[in-house]
Amino acid sequence: MNLTLKVWRQDGPEATGHMDTHALGGVSPDMSFLEMMDMLNDQIIRAGEEPVAFDHDCREGICGMCSMFINGEAHGPGRGVTTCQLHMRSFNDGDTIAIEPWRAQAFPVIKDLTVDRSAFDRVIQAGGYISVNTSGNTIDANAIPVPKEQADDAFSAATCIGCGACVASCKNASAMLFVSAKVSQFALLPQGQPERESRVQRMVEQMDKEGFGNCTNTGACAVECPKGIDLSNIARMNRDFMSATVKSKK
């Protein structure tokens, strides 16, 4: 396959970026999108220029590091896949492909296609945990039964890989799907109940502080989410936040 790649190049957070055009030939349909990017970089390095910087690590769709906005969509045209799982067979010979970084105030560009997603970490640090010490001397794991359906829902929420595709796809750069997935995971489990209210309040507060936009329920996040995190999580967070706000003492 022969492709024309339009790639966003930006030297640093303060620099102005632009789209660069590269021609790439000899692409095989069996290659993953990132392998195609490797090939592009190989070509660029051999030509004595600076390769495209992009985040990637596990290349099997679970670490959440890869983050490309391909042809107008987070992680490209596939559904339920990350950029690394997207294969070139999803494209045609002669295609022009636009590749951009996640764009959000809260995700500043580091270089080219690499962005800083530490805002997500800070949201988790604000309360995305159960306060239990790592003594190993908690009660037996089977002492608290959890109804299977609830456990399965908690798991589904917990499968979020923190890639940020939700923010990237949302026209408002809102992080509601990410935040609500963690809130939901713990809200659905008995272990999460003691901190349920304070958790949602602290996480939402941090989310707002980071400069993410507001949710307008377009649902784009859930469509583009590589792990299929459901919108019901956002509703659950809306509900929990309201009840926490009404009930809280301060």
């Binding site: 969509e73 045209p77 764009r103 959000a104 809260a106 026209k171 936009g213 469509v223």
Partner: peptide, 14 residues
């Protein structure tokens, strides 16, 4: 929340 917009955005996809 998004000071720099996308060059190519396919909102209709999602």
């Amino acid at each position: 929340a998004r000071p720099t917009g996308y060059v190519k955005e396919k909102g209709s996809a999602n």
